[in-house]
Amino acid sequence: MAKFIYNPSLEVNDITVTYNNGHTAIYDASFSLSAGTICALVGVNGSGKSTLFKSIMGFVKPVKGSVTLSGMPVLTALKQNIVSYVPQAEDVDWNFPVLVEDVVMMGRFGHMNFMRIPKKKDKLAVRDALEKVGMTEYSRRQIGELSGGQKKRVFLARSIAQEGQIILLDEPFTGVDVQTELAIMKLLKQMRDEGRLMLVATHNLGSIPDFCDHTVMLNRTILDAGKTADVFTPENLEKTFGGVLRHFTLGGDELHDDDDTRSVRVITDDERPLVLYGNKTQKSAAAKKSSTANKPDADAKITTSKAEAK
């Protein structure tokens, strides 16, 4: 942690964001995070996750409240090149004549002088980042000549190459295959151990207990925030997602013939279900699921059909 000039922290102070059309996407939201953390940001579609990211980045201005990054206002922090951000959807011109490696190199611009001439360490960082997301063999492709998931991986590589201390990822795993997802999660954990701060919006509830030590639950305002172990409870999830979640409870009698009355609950907002057994989060279940990644849907289907049969 000592290697950072600024101690990474993120503070959102009572912000309210109203769009030009009069819609208030977020109101009275406050939370804070400190160094060495991966924080999950969860909420239904339209709950304001992307809006929260944009207001942290200063792209939309809150009508009330403030955001500080490592103790600095947004613009100052951005000038120090300590923040990297991967938006939910890249708003770029895919026909632009840049190669994959050029795009990743843009992540290094903040480390260069004003002429932006790359040094050896910049080239190494680019190569390294591309390798980490498994895109090395595509490094000389034009950016538009990639599949959707590959594009996503390139922009993740750019944020890795940037070596930001505060890393904001808006649904980094959508459209990315399970193998890459696992590799990236591993990478995020490494970066956490280096003392960085990450905020990750995701619908993959199943993987949250696995790699996020903190969780923020959002539905236009903060419903709860804190350590995942404390916050990530069925009650809170119920509150956050309401009726939107697919929610299946399998009673003990459906699972086995003995007298054990505990039940298995499968809650999912997305393709990866979160499995609860007797009100306890099953970390191992999520992990095991990942290792049998080749048939990600198999067990989910079984539960669905059982639930429907019920």
Binding site: M57, G58, F59, L78, K79, Q80, N81, V83, S84, Y85, P87, E90, D91, V92, D93, F96, V98, M106, G107, F109, G110, M115, R116, R158, Q162
Partner: peptide, 17 residues
Amino acid sequence: KDLMVTFFDESHAKTIG
């Protein structure tokens, strides 16, 4: 180069200050 980043990806350009 700064113009290139700005026109290719404005939000990234802002992100790097």
